[in-house]
């Protein structure tokens, strides 16, 4: 038995695959590896397969992690390549290796935000964003687990946000808290809408770029 971790990209068409469907997609690609995913014991056995920080539908990522157990002994070599033979466009396994570091050491995630302005970026946008995201309190509405809307302060979960202006887009390079609780970078756009309504972008694109531990190094 081996406990493994898979590093993969989820982008383009695959960014619209829901969490459950993503698990199903990996399960179907799995027989290609010649390995067998372990199932839980009990009345309704389910495959021991989980995504470390499920990505919201519509966002893309180059650093997704999936954990799973296989019945055989393996260090994971070759698995990523074999899986890639059966995956949809935009889903690509990069590496597979034994799961060693505990997931709790995953502290932050880094993402890029693209705020698109179809009629050009309003003057001074980046400066105003810098000011907004350095405030001590930034309140947005968030759905709770019980599906109610609650106001949360995202300032303490925001580690860093750098903004650069392009012609029709402002790019944000942000680092946010990954878990307990995690911050969905999309909420930064919501904060813009609330505090700087005149800078509400026409569209927002989010892409995860890295998972980090608390010393800022890549978590794998």
């Amino acid at each position: 038995m081996s406990k493994l971790r898979l590093l993969f990209v989820k982008e383009a068409q695959s960014s619209y695959i829901s969490h459950l469907d993503l698990l199903r997609t990996f399960q179907r690609a799995f027989p290609r590896t010649g390995l067998e995913i372990r199932h839980s014991q009990g009345y309704h056995p389910h495959p021991l397969l989980s995504i470390v920080l499920p990505l919201p539908v519509g966002q893309s990522s180059v650093c997704e992690l999936m954990e799973f157990e296989v019945t055989q002994e393996t260090d994971g070599a070759g698995i990523a390549e074999k899986l890639n033979g059966g995956l949809p466009a935009g889903l690509r396994a990069l590496d597979c290796y034994p799961a060693e570091r505990p997931v709790r050491e995953l502290a932050d995630l880094r993402a890029t935000l693209e705020l698109e302005y179809d009629c050009g970026v309003p003057a001074g946008t980046a400066d105003q964003l810098r000011e907004l995201f350095s405030r001590p309190e930034i309140l947005v509405f968030k759905r709770t687990k019980r599906k109610e809307l609650a106001e949360v302060d995202i300032a303490p979960m925001l580690r860093r946000a750098d903004w650069t202006e392009q012609t029709t887009c402002v790019r944000g390079d942000v680092v946010v808290q990954a878990q307990n609780p995690g911050l969905n970078p999309q909420l930064l756009a919501q904060a813009v809408e609330r505090y700087l309504p005149e800078l509400t972008p026409d569209f927002v694109r989010v892409r995860r770029t890295a998972l980090l531990d608390d010393s800022g190094r890549d978590f794998r």
Binding site: A12, Q13, S14, Y16, I17, S18, D21, A29, V57, G58, G86, L87, P88, A89, G90, D202, F203, R205
Partner: peptide
């Protein structure tokens, strides 16, 4: 991906059915 499509998708139910790219799609 078509820009209009990209902007529509976050607002519709089950967006995966409108994007293609499945394994074995030609």
């Amino acid at each position: 991906m078509d820009k209009r499509l990209e902007r529509i998708l976050p607002r519709v139910q089950k967006p995966a059915r409108y994007v293609g790219g499945e394994y074995n799609a030609v």
